[in-house]
Design a protein around this nucleic acid. Sequence first.
DNA 1: CTGTTAGCGCCTTCAT
DNA 2: ATGAAGGCGCTAACAG
Lengths: 340, 340
Amino acid sequence: MTKGKKKNTTIRDVAKKAGVSVASVSRYINQNAPLSTSISIKIQAAMTELNFVPHIMARRLATNKTNTIGLLVADLYGDFFPPMFHGIESVTGEAGFDLLISSSARTGPRTEFPSSLGPHNTDGMLVFWDSLSEAGLHQAYERDFPIVLIHQSPPDKMSIPCVTVENKAASRRIVEHLMEAHGRRRIVFLRGPDHNEDSYWRETGYRQALEMRGIPFDAELVAPGEFDRAVAEQSIRNLLSRGIVFDAVFACDDESAAGVYSALYAAGRTIPNDVAVVGFDDQRFSAYINPPLTTVRAHTEDVGRIAARQLLQIIHDGTADSLTLVPTEIVFRQSCGCNP
Amino acid sequence: MTKGKKKNTTIRDVAKKAGVSVASVSRYINQNAPLSTSISIKIQAAMTELNFVPHIMARRLATNKTNTIGLLVADLYGDFFPPMFHGIESVTGEAGFDLLISSSARTGPRTEFPSSLGPHNTDGMLVFWDSLSEAGLHQAYERDFPIVLIHQSPPDKMSIPCVTVENKAASRRIVEHLMEAHGRRRIVFLRGPDHNEDSYWRETGYRQALEMRGIPFDAELVAPGEFDRAVAEQSIRNLLSRGIVFDAVFACDDESAAGVYSALYAAGRTIPNDVAVVGFDDQRFSAYINPPLTTVRAHTEDVGRIAARQLLQIIHDGTADSLTLVPTEIVFRQSCGCNP
DNA sequence: CTGTTAGCGCCTTCAT
DNA sequence: ATGAAGGCGCTAACAG
């Protein structure tokens, strides 16, 4: 195969070979203007013969539309990402949009609006929690660049649409379940990372449940979980060694619930007899763990799908719901004391 | 905020405001030519004042380089994707490349080379197993467009670099372990999907282990697993109901191993006493399942990292290793009979 | 060091 | 229905 100066074959080459004007070829490609059949056939022939592929960058320059949406994500370890991505991809793909992904795992939350995802490069952007700093968001907001936030509500004064899961009610209900169905009274809450909104609302639900049963909130019963197995394990160990009494724990997510299991087993406590434990997220391992974990299922794929739809809608007509809460449901397994 | 005809602010606007030429602005942006400090300062001032963002599409048109690499993936459910993606992103991000992702989950393996990921739009492409048909691959190959295959070796006559995990030796060793350490002789093998190469090599390893111990291959002992929990479960049920005797099963992946557990438990068999079971992949739940699953760990993040490096290298100087096998290691837990 | 200018490949009025 | 021509925003010679 001779290489040589691989000259790009352009719309012009096609036009020449087909004996028509470039405008006609363009029209043929875009199917956006009447065109005689005879000419269409010639163009098609020329295109296949020349193995022509339109240069999308050129098209984008000319039309000033990118037809791609950006995805800014912090860290994509963990189980949440694949379904979320799947949801997003299913709607953007359907709509003919490409997906440009950028992770800020290496760099930490971006303080600058990433220029490769911003205006000129994408038509809009999906921003996950913790992936873009407030300053970065502000930049985008100022230029009213289409954005929708995922699992993060907009900072003050910016009204940016947001889609996330229903945290509070489900948390309240699962804690109530611990109290009502299983008679637990001393319930530990394991927090997520500081400033994480999911964690905040889950804690709020926890407190509400307590309040509704007239049980005073006890600060000793809340400890860091950080969405991290090891941190959660250590927290429970500390509680235990300090002799703090508890008969249940509501872990802010399943990951930390797994840490709770380890600490409890190491201390010779049984689940759920000695202490019931429940989590949040319904990760894949949660059904396999022993005993199977009672937890809250978040429909992450729906979150992705809805967020993508919102963004496309903004791009299309500028409108969107300012907040959409995707429903969650409790999955009752055995770690709370059910289904013995 | 008045909108009006939001005219894009261009390099030209910056040049005018700074009182310099567009070339200087371009040079300033790209830092690729000497420039006096005084002029640099003026340009910087103008840029921030105008809130200027370079139009990357225009730049790409002009340079004929996209600085993005495409990622073609079939389905991204399951645990393998996040670490793989993480590996890829870490090297492409480091190198300043964007990532354009396209899933073929909606459409099935693409028969056409996806034009939005091909030449003109990306500098190269990472192709996962089952995401692009042979015809599509051929198209790319003909134009010698940089590609590296992941978990899939190239079809005949095309020499496209490929990176995947070491399947055969690990499979042989894990089956040998079943025989030598735990005295198993009647070992079931649960296949993956037809034509899946990982499955093929794992089966090959299984057969080799048998052969080395002089145990004849028994076709009755191999059944479909399909990398699917339910399918695997059904296969084991069938074996059981047909009265076929076995004392171990090597599931082609952990997902199907989970199905094996269910079928075995339902039939009142114990693991590993009645039948030992081992898997492949070391998914997250495998450590949590009861009993913890002995399996083969694939370093998926490394696969991603290496594949990305290979691709970058092809793009850079046209060279690459035709095949790289990422090492795997056996993780001994309890389902094989170890660590009782 | 800095400015001028001709494209990159395509789209899109505006005529015809 | 079709063609001609002027950009889209930026880069890269080529002069100076």
